[in-house]
Design a protein around this nucleic acid. Sequence first.
DNA 1: GTACAACTTGGAGTGAACTCCAAGTCAAGC
DNA 2: GCTTGACTTGGAGTTCACTCCAAGTTGTAC
Lengths: 130, 130
Amino acid sequence: MTIKEVCEKYDITADTLRYYERVGVIPAVTRTSGGIRDYQAEDIAWVENAICFRDAGMPVEMLIEYVKLYQEGDGTIDARTALLREAREVMLEAKKKYDIALAKLDYKIGRYEIAQKTGVLSWTDDEKDG
Amino acid sequence: MTIKEVCEKYDITADTLRYYERVGVIPAVTRTSGGIRDYQAEDIAWVENAICFRDAGMPVEMLIEYVKLYQEGDGTIDARTALLREAREVMLEAKKKYDIALAKLDYKIGRYEIAQKTGVLSWTDDEKDG
DNA sequence: GTACAACTTGGAGTGAACTCCAAGTCAAGC
DNA sequence: GCTTGACTTGGAGTTCACTCCAAGTTGTAC
């Protein structure tokens, strides 16, 4: 698969794919004899993971560290597990923040909807913040 | 409440609080006669909202826009509702991404845990990506 | 075999969101 | 009234994660 096809498949720019490879977010991609990237199933799996974890806020640094450990071999399985567990904790915390914000948002939207229907926006004392 | 007290209460730096005020993420904070910030309940409510929505990935630009609309008065209630609804959609999408990443993470952690117990890390064909 | 698009590289540039700094002002304790 | 520490401002600097660029190479279509 060419870089262009991977870009289109995952809606990501070629620059980002090359950047991921350059800094080590994914391991070196398979090349043709001419040096052009030719993504194999394994390369694509790494790309998919990178996008997935970046989308969940995992820092580039952490992905680089994971790839580095992976390349060092089976001796790093404990370290990799620890890294993934830490990432998991961070993600769960972040998700909680989303729930809190969504609750706040739904409450505010609800109040505005009532205001739109009645023409009156009523406030409680500790809530003079739009 | 002084800026320091607000910092400690919300675990945020004074620089960030001043930055939020400067760019309009929160409206101008109440001051003492000497010009020093003296956060009132309303100011604090704005700070709390700003932190909450930033934690859920809402861009600073969007918060600035909301405060601007709020300050323009009741005529902007429709616009504010639309803005909040859009923020809501974005947050729900982002939360989905977290769920996908968490599922992937849990699967990988599970595999590593088995590897740690048995000393063998087994792979399926399309999953040679650590 | 030559045009031409798509690829390659290293390195510089960008935007978002802070974060730091210098120079000065304010306020509480002695 | 003077020290000391926390506060003020405008502006510059930093970090993260890309994003763009120039100069050169590869590969396909005529």
